[in-house]
Design a binder for these strands. Structure first.
Length: 222
DNA sequence: GACCAGGCACATC
DNA sequence: GATGTGCATGGT
């Protein structure tokens, strides 16, 4: 069985276990973009509070945030943690969208995936996971999002080894899932769901607490 | 009270 | 290039 087969099999198992994830939580491309920055190393519940603050303040649109004082933005997003640095990062990203795309998120859709990815990665505060989350979930681009849960789960189940880096894992998923945006979207969401529920950062790693993984081990020949 | 959460940039070796 | 550190709130 190839690694690609394993990836696809894991997808099916997680889908059976957790069902359709309907990701990303967010009602607009803009909301996904903001959430992608705010969720950096942060619980999503805290991000929701920060976004709610922005909505209640009546400033939840790109134009309002573009004009806003950074200190006020920081105060509004405070519940998301790291609020000073995230205010800067959000500003950097919005400034980029204004400078490069005239503040029009829809305009970004016309750009090629790879060049847009490079542009996003040049923005200070936008790393690979944040860029890829924006590309996939806000802009419907065919990019698989790799996060801490992805590494943790794959490593603990002997699908990757410790020195495997972000781009290697991304390639692994993208080649396994054959450019299917719908699958990229769903599987990343399922992995996060799995990680949140079962795969904490520092368990006794021999014997993953993961509930569904023994079933994977039975079905997949690791 | 300790530990963790859907990262990232920067300093230092 | 790898390794360590600061950033910070809120839930368990």
């Amino acid at each position: 069985m190839t690694t690609a087969d394993k990836i696809r099999q894991i997808y099916q198992l997680l889908l059976d276990a957790f069902g359709d994830q309907k990701w990303w939580p967010g009602e607009s491309r803009f909301e996904v973009i903001v959430g992608a920055v705010l969720t950096q190393n942060t619980n999503w519940k805290n991000v929701e509070k920060a976004i709610e603050n922005l909505k209640k303040a009546g400033v939840f649109d790109i134009g309002a945030l573009h004009k806003m004082q950074i200190s006020y933005l920081a105060e509004l997003i405070r519940p998301a943690g790291y609020y000073n640095i995230k205010a800067k990062r959000l500003k950097n990203l919005i400034d980029f969208i204004y400078q490069r795309y005239d503040g029009d998120i829809e305009d970004m859709l016309n750009q090629g995936t790879e060049s847009l990815r490079q542009e996003l990665l040049e923005v200070n505060g936008i790393g690979r996971e944040t860029a890829d989350s924006i590309l996939l979930y806000a802009l419907d681009k065919p990019v698989f999002v790799v996060d801490a849960y992805t590494f943790r789960i794959l490593y603990r189940h002997n699908i990757i080894d410790a020195d495997c880096d972000y781009e290697m894992v991304r390639e692994l998923f993208q080649s396994s899932l054959d450019g299917d945006i719908r699958l990229y979207n769903q599987l990343h969401a399922l992995i996060v769901q799995t990680g949140k529920n079962f795969c904490k950062a520092k368990p006794a790693c021999n014997g993953c607490p993961l509930d569904c993984m023994p079933k994977i081990s039975e079905l997949v020949d690791f």
